Simulated scan of single mutants.
Amino acid sequence: MAPHRNDPDNASTDWHAQELLLMREVMKLVGRSLAPAFVLREMLHLMSELLGLNRGRMVLADDAVPGAERTASVRHAYGLTAEEAARGVFHWGEGITGRVLASGLPAIVQDVDAEPLFLFRTVARAQLPPQTVAFIALPIEVNGATVGVLACHRIRSRQRHLNDDLALLRILATLAGQLLQLEQLVAEERRQLA
């Protein structure tokens, strides 16, 4: 039976095939364009469409301002309005996203309504489905330093196992870090050539 792309909670969905399709499509994008913005946004799109990992976002470190507290902002997103993405600014250590930035450790919130550290800053609770919503946030690293967070919402009662989502998100966070590192290297090379 063919996978049901539009219904990620359908019990007959072949999750392994969906994962492989997502990875194949992401790697095709990397092969076509090393521009991280394009690849990362499409990665978030595919996470939503194929696996039901919704409102995906990449929160990346802002340029450091001397004397100011470090912040990070939503730079790439799928399923967020422009206003929601603009609200996605976090200080290191603030809320769940800020804690992942500060610690470099993943965070899994099983129920956003029961987690006092969950800020609802980017997406208001009224905009989320009425079911129990989980939030997953993983660090994005470049050269061993946390430079951002890959995060998404997930309906907790999904048929797909949480561990499967975590394993795939770890791979995607690693790939995002590699793309960002490549972008830094290319920018540095251009500066040197100039």
Rank of each mutant, 00 (worst) to 15 (best):
Pro8Lys: 06
Pro8Met: 02
Asp9Trp: 12
Trp15Ser: 14
His16Pro: 08
Glu19Cys: 15
Glu19Met: 15
Met23Thr: 15
Val26Ser: 04
Gly31Gln: 03
Arg32His: 08
Arg32Glu: 10
Ser33Met: 02
Leu34Gly: 05
Glu42Met: 02
His45Leu: 15
Leu46Lys: 01
Leu50Pro: 13
Leu53Tyr: 15
Gly56Lys: 06
Val59Ser: 06
Asp63Cys: 02
Pro66Asp: 04
Ala68Cys: 01
Ala68Met: 04
Ala68Phe: 04
Glu69Gln: 08
Arg70Thr: 05
Ala72Thr: 05
Val74Ile: 07
Leu80Pro: 01
Ala82Gly: 04
Ala82Val: 03
Glu84Ser: 03
Ala85Cys: 02
Gly88Ser: 07
Val89Pro: 01
Trp92Tyr: 08
Glu94Asp: 06
Gly95Thr: 07
Ile96Ser: 05
Ile96Gln: 00
Thr97Asn: 08
Val100Trp: 10
Gly104Gln: 09
Ala107Val: 14
Ile108Ala: 07
Val112Glu: 07
Val112Ala: 08
Pro116Asn: 10
Pro116His: 09
Leu117Met: 13
Leu117Ile: 11
Phe118Asn: 11
Leu119Ala: 14
Phe120Glu: 12
Arg121Gln: 14
Arg121Phe: 09
Thr122Lys: 13
Val123Ser: 11
Ala124Thr: 11
Gln127Ala: 12
Gln127Pro: 00
Gln131Lys: 06
Thr132Trp: 06
Ala134Phe: 08
Phe135Ser: 12
Leu138Tyr: 07
Pro139Glu: 04
Val142Gly: 00
Asn143Ser: 12
Gly144Ala: 06
Gly144Met: 03
Gly148Pro: 05
His153Met: 13
